[in-house]
């Protein structure tokens, strides 16, 4: 149980760091409200940087449909689950 909880927060922390990296914002400002286009700085360039950051952090290759689908922070969590990341 304890171990499960640790895993949860760890993935979350890693995801948060990947977002901070990709969008060039502080880790503290990463939250569920982040949305493509409405979050300042989350434009197409930042989006590709974010995808690269997620790919390398989680050692996955997001496919095109997922890249297009990934329009918010909660959505990222949902998509990463498909790739076997546990939150």
């Amino acid at each position: 149980m304890q171990e499960d909880k640790l895993t949860l927060s760890e993935s979350e922390l890693i995801l948060r760091r990947a977002f901070a990296n990709g969008l060039q914002i502080s880790e503290e400002s990463v939250n569920d409200a982040l949305q493509y286009a409405s979050t300042p700085g989350w434009d197409s360039v930042a989006h590709m940087a974010l995808i690269a950051s997620l790919d390398s952090t989680f050692d996955i290759m997001l496919d095109t449909d997922d890249v297009l689908e990934l329009s918010s922070y909660p959505k990222a969590r949902e998509i990463l689950r498909k790739y076997g990341v546990r939150f």
């Binding site: 493509y36 434009d43 197409s44 297009l68 689908e69």
Partner: peptide, 27 residues
């Protein structure tokens, strides 16, 4: 409405079928 890296953009494209599309090198 959306950016070319969003699902809604390609939904719009499928539905309205542009005859021409434009892009800068990054695109």
């Amino acid at each position: 409405h959306a950016s070319f890296l969003q699902r809604t953009y390609w939904d719009f494209v499928s539905k309205h079928q542009p005859s021409s599309m434009a892009g800068v090198p990054y695109h």
